[in-house]
Computed example of a mutant assay.
Amino acid sequence: MSIILASQSPRRRELLAQMGVPQFEVVPALGEEIASPGLSSAQLVEVLSRQKAEEVAVQAGPDDVVIAADTVVAVDGAVLGKPRDPADAARMLSLLSGRAHTVYTGVTVRRGTFSRTAHEATQVRFRPLTQSEISAYIATGEPMDKAGAYGIQGRGCVLVEGIDGNYHNVVGLPTCLLAGMLRQVGIDVLTGGQEGRP
């Protein structure tokens, strides 16, 4: 049995290792993400994480475990993914300035014919930001590969007044939720134990 992370995100790799997941390999899902219009943010991240897991599962063995995730930021009914360019990052950060938003991460775990998908939601509050602060933060390059154009685990931490919910979910992987899902496929990250297929 191999454990496969269907993501190229370095944050997700770090969190999976931090959880104590036994040796895993990274096989990023490269296909185009397709979602039906009208989905809620929670439904969207679940659909996208499921698509990623299904894409990579085709390359996996029948006993391999595939883990996939997708994260978005939602505010005023708008979904913020990764910014297209610095101007888009500035738009997102201006929208988030001085208010609360919700970070959603969908997670899918597959092993053979077993598949489970769930999501986590975390409320995040930004302090008011000046345009010069937004420009300075964008100049670091950090916002460009992150949903909502900020990284709470990096310099973006100085933008956040507080959170309500799971911190690691904001980074991109809800570790407590994932640990429970892995137990369902026979992997206990606390004991390092592995059981048979579900």
Results as ranks from 00 to 15, higher is better:
I187N: 02
L129R: 06
G77L: 04
T140H: 09
I152G: 01
S2L: 12
V75L: 11
G156K: 04
V47Q: 10
Y104L: 09
G148Q: 01
Q184N: 12
G154M: 04
V26C: 12
E54W: 09
Q123R: 15
K52Y: 08
S135Q: 15
Q23F: 11
T108E: 04
E120T: 08
I67V: 14
G77I: 03
E195C: 13
A118G: 05
S7M: 08
V27M: 13
I134G: 01
V47E: 10
T175N: 03
L5P: 00
P10H: 09
A57L: 13
V45R: 02
Q194T: 13
I34D: 00
Q8D: 11
Q184W: 06
L177A: 09
C157N: 12
G151A: 14
A90Y: 04
S132M: 14
S135N: 12
D64A: 12
M181F: 07
P83G: 06
E195R: 14
E55L: 10
C157E: 12
N169D: 09
V158K: 06
T71W: 00
Q8Y: 07
A89P: 08
S94N: 13
S9A: 11
L44P: 01
R84W: 07
T105R: 08
V27I: 14
E161V: 11
C157K: 14
A74M: 09
S2P: 04
V65E: 01
L173I: 07
I34F: 03
V72Q: 02
L80Q: 02
P143C: 06
D63T: 13
A17Q: 15
P174K: 09
Y137K: 11
R155V: 10
V160L: 08
T191G: 12
I67K: 08
E32H: 07
A35E: 02
S7E: 03
V26T: 11
A74R: 06
D76K: 12
D64F: 07
T117P: 04
G196P: 00
R50G: 03
G77D: 03
D70I: 00
R91I: 03
V66W: 01
Y137N: 09
T102I: 13
R125P: 03
V171C: 08
L93I: 04
I187G: 03
V73I: 11
A74S: 14
I4A: 05
L129H: 08
G20H: 07
L93E: 01
S115P: 05
Q153R: 02
G81Y: 01
A57M: 13
R12M: 09
L39S: 00
G193L: 14
G172W: 02
P22M: 08
